[in-house]
Simulated scan of single mutants.
Amino acid sequence: MSSRRRFLELSAAGAFALASPRLHAKDPMKKLGVALVGLGMYSTGQLGPALKQTKHCRLSAVVTGSPEKGRQWARDYGFPESSVYGYDTMGRLADNKDVDIVYVVTPPALHARDCIAAAKAGKHVLCEKPMEVSTAQCDVIINACKAAGVKLSIGYRLHFDPFHEELRKLVRSQEFGPFMTMTGGFAFSMQKAQWRAEKALAGGGPLMDLGIYVVQEACMAAGATPVAATATVHPKKRPEFFKDVEESISWTLEFPNGAKCESFTSYDAGRNDFRAEAKGGWFELKPAFNYGGIAGATSRGPLVIAGVNQQALQMDDFALCVLNGQESRVGGAMGRRDMAIVEAIYASAAGGGKRVEVR
């Protein structure tokens, strides 16, 4: 098959999957207001710029611990300074009719606090991954959103990337058969001390921050939730830096049909790949988990797919869910599922690598 034909085929498939029936909104011209909670690197480098490209939502407020920073965002994005809030004044969002969705981008251990505040203010909730630091806290978020009658979505941007949609398409069609052997890794070398290395805020080390992507990809490729995990924490090279979280960890996920995924993550290495093999063919991404510049191939040849703004598509999809009264494809149940998997991985590592069932 020519690369041109393959490009057209994948572009059409990706456009169909990413557009979805949700595009038939009751008011397709309406843009919903989004409040970003937390103005760190991800909001500054990715979400803010993406909101300038969205079709169905716009930035209308921010929540930050720095009023000065908030006022600068107001000037840069064209919303009133009265729509700058502190973490202790999030309740006032209830009075802001320009805010429909609150996107929580604070450290994981603060997600429940901020999601609850958003839900109580009557705003739909978009929570960054990982959903929280335990399944119990995930339940708190889910219950708060249900009680308030608001929708909940998790920031799994790769579900809106066409390279990853190609993997899901292969799983749905079973063109290669079931993927039985999988490997994946996501790692980088952390050079500066930050909250990601503090258990009180992050809930753990690279497994919570990076490994969650590999967990997600394995579930995509298997088309199922794993039944068990085994894991090993590697000796720390910089114990003074990673005092209460793991520095590197390997784990194996077992799926109901016997498929397995061998995985790795670290704050002291370099990896960014995923591969899935079946009897009839294979699928590979390298790099696999970037914001852009993903590259991949299957046993048929290279994947020639145009890049997208993952975050813009992710936020637009949730806006359309709100407009159409539909549930997010990456909702709270998925966020909780992944935390249950993470808990099993940590339990196995703490138990010397024993097999732990995912509950």
Rank of each mutant, 00 (worst) to 15 (best):
N272E: 09
G40V: 05
G307T: 01
S60H: 11
K243W: 06
G38C: 08
G122S: 04
S20R: 07
E254S: 15
R22T: 02
V304C: 05
P226E: 08
L18T: 02
V125M: 07
C219I: 02
C321L: 02
G86F: 00
N143T: 10
E277F: 00
H56K: 09
T252V: 15
K286A: 14
R5S: 14
V227Y: 06
K146H: 11
G205V: 05
S328R: 01
T265W: 03
R71Y: 03
G331S: 09
K55G: 12
T230A: 15
L201T: 03
A340T: 10
V215Y: 00
M131N: 09
L39Q: 11
P49W: 09
V62T: 10
K52A: 15
Q314C: 08
G185Y: 02
Q137K: 14
G70L: 04
L126Y: 11
T54C: 15
L158Y: 06
E262Q: 13
A306N: 07
D139N: 12
K30G: 08
A333L: 12
E284W: 00
D27T: 04
T106D: 14
V102L: 04
F283I: 01
N143W: 03
A347V: 02
A118K: 01
L47Y: 14
A144E: 08
C219Y: 01
R58C: 13
A50N: 11
M41T: 14
C115G: 07
G204W: 00
L110A: 14
A119I: 00
G204Y: 03
E240S: 14
L201I: 00
T181L: 13
K151H: 05
A119G: 03
V63G: 13
V140A: 15
R113A: 13
N290G: 15
Y346E: 12
D209R: 05
K97R: 15
F255E: 10
A17P: 01
L285D: 09
E277Q: 14
E240V: 02
F255Y: 09
T64K: 06
T232N: 11
V102K: 02
S250H: 05
E166A: 15
T135S: 15
L253S: 07
E175K: 13
G45I: 00
G91C: 08
G352D: 10
F7Q: 11
I101D: 02
G296I: 00
A121L: 01
K69C: 05
G204H: 06
L152N: 11
I141P: 05
V99G: 14
A297M: 08
A148N: 06
A224G: 03
G204P: 04
Q216A: 13
L59R: 09
A121T: 03
M131W: 01
Y213F: 08
E132T: 13
V215G: 00
K236A: 11
K199A: 15
G78E: 08
P28C: 08
F242D: 14
K123P: 05
G293Q: 04
L39N: 12
H124N: 14
W73V: 10
G331V: 06
V358L: 06
M334W: 14
G352K: 04
K286H: 10
R157L: 12
G45L: 14
V84Y: 05
E284T: 06
M180V: 08
T265L: 08
G270K: 13
H24G: 04
L170Y: 03
N257Y: 03
G204D: 13
A121R: 00
L210Y: 13
K286Y: 06
N272L: 01
G122I: 01
A117E: 07
D27F: 04
I154V: 15
R359L: 05
D317A: 13
L39C: 12
G211W: 01
N96Q: 12
G223E: 05
